[in-house]
């Protein structure tokens, strides 16, 4: 199924951004976890359109929440 690229700009679409390798290591260190313990995101996910990601990249999702204002969520890109 083709996804309309404009969906990225939708108001309900939280911001997705790719982390650099250094930022990624920092995240893994702060939470004291391995890559496998991070939540996953499929490489085909519509949120990653135009981000040029590969397997193993960490994506930071910035969400607006009712309780906390903005919150960060991290996902690792997988192909399965």
């Amino acid at each position: 199924m083709k996804v309309d690229p404009k969906i990225i700009n939708h108001v309900l679409m939280p911001k997705h951004e790719k982390l650099s390798d250094r930022q990624k290591q920092e995240i893994l260190k702060t939470y004291n976890i391995t890559e496998g313990q991070l939540p996953k995101i499929k490489i085909k996910d519509a949120g990653l359109m135009g981000l040029d990601v590969k397997r193993g990249d960490v994506i930071r999702i910035t969400r607006k929440t009712r309780t906390a204002g903005t919150s960060y969520f991290y996902r690792v890109v997988t192909d399965v």
Partner: peptide
């Protein structure tokens, strides 16, 4: 203890409890 929510395999489910840690 670090404020994250994890399952039995210590995989992260939420990075901060309820996203605000309250």
């Amino acid at each position: 203890y670090d404020g994250t929510i994890r399952d039995s395999a210590k995989k992260v489910v939420q990075f901060k409890y309820g996203e605000d840690g309250i």
